[in-house]
């Protein structure tokens, strides 16, 4: 009889410990990466690391500017391509499409979400690079745009579903067309959610490694046009981890890059989650 209660008590403590462990992963990862960046930060200022363009690890010169620009270019291109397409798709799915269309499209989108990054990379080389632009930030942006389709579509569709039916009906019964209702009522109402989706998509794009690496060209110079090759931060880390223990401070520099990614993505995620949680609470309570 007492054993049951004891078992419950022990298991509850164990679960608490596991919960604390997994929650503290956020802090552990941040602290671990920062700790490894300290040697680099001792010799360099944040300003010089972020804004210098000179990348010569052998000489101990670590300027991340080209990589940061590479990341920004690829991300910007991906969002510019993806957002209008996904927004229109989400509107279509939420407001226009019949059940048959939804039954076909939704599974396809979820299958797309399951395709591994490396497969996108192979497709990028075989299709995007081959038929369009060569190894460039544009190729990276296109591949990334397709990769973030499912994320943006599913979040925006969900946001649309939080908008009360009555609001749409009110607009429609005033004689507005469906599209006018979408533009003037739904989009306006969904704006915070759309922003949250963009922020989430941006942070996803920042961190995407292998697919982008495979099609971007990886030249450590800040790109000047969409047809220039670029070298995003995650690609830098992934391409050089092999040598990083043989050159002084190189490991620190690469893990600093990982730390940068971590911090930016953490902040972006927090912001968008807070917005999305607010939206959800608005409908549930």
């Amino acid at each position: 009889m007492q054993i049951r209660l004891l078992k419950d008590r022990i298991l509850s403590k164990l679960m608490l410990a596991l919960t604390i462990f997994s929650v503290s992963l956020v802090a552990l990862i941040g602290a671990g990466l920062y700790y490894k960046s300290v040697p680099l930060l001792r010799d360099n200022t944040w300003g010089s690391l972020l804004f210098s363009s000179v990348w010569e690890p052998m000489k101990g010169l670590f300027g991340f500017f080209p990589f940061i620009m590479g990341t920004l270019w690829v991300t910007a291109i991906a969002i510019i391509i993806s957002l209008p397409l996904c927004l229109l798709t989400a509107i279509y799915l939420a407001e226009y499409a019949g059940t048959t269309v939804k039954k076909i499209v939704n599974p396809l989108v979820s299958l797309l979400a399951g395709i591994p990054p490396v497969i996108f990379g192979v497709w990028g080389i075989l299709f995007v690079v081959e038929f369009t632009t060569g190894y460039s930030v544009l190729a990276g942006g296109i591949v990334l745009a397709v990769m973030i389709f499912p994320l943006i579509v599913s979040i925006i569709t969900e946001v649309f579903n939080t908008i009360p039916r009555e609001l749409k009906d009110a607009s429609l019964s005033l004689g507005a067309t469906k599209w006018e209702t979408v533009r003037k009522v739904i989009l306006r109402k969904a704006l915070p959610g759309i922003i949250a989706a963009i922020v989430l998509a941006v942070s996803r794009a920042f961190g995407e490694t292998i697919a982008v690496l495979m099609v971007c060209g990886n030249v450590p110079v800040a790109p000047k046009s969409v047809f220039d090759p670029g070298y995003p931060l995650p690609a830098l880390i992934a391409n050089n981890y092999g040598e990083m223990l043989s050159v002084p401070l190189y490991d620190s520099a690469l893990l600093y890059a990982a730390f940068l990614l971590f911090v930016i993505i953490l902040v972006f995620n927090l912001v968008s989650r807070i917005i999305l949680n607010r939206l959800e609470r608005r409908i549930s309570g």
Partner: peptide, 20 residues
């Protein structure tokens, strides 16, 4: 919220952390 954030952390960061 913590798990939402962890979900968004890219795998390269997990890889780097695993490496450390």
């Amino acid at each position: 919220m913590c798990f939402d954030v962890l979900f968004g952390i890219p795998s390269i960061v997990y890889g780097a952390f695993g490496f450390i």
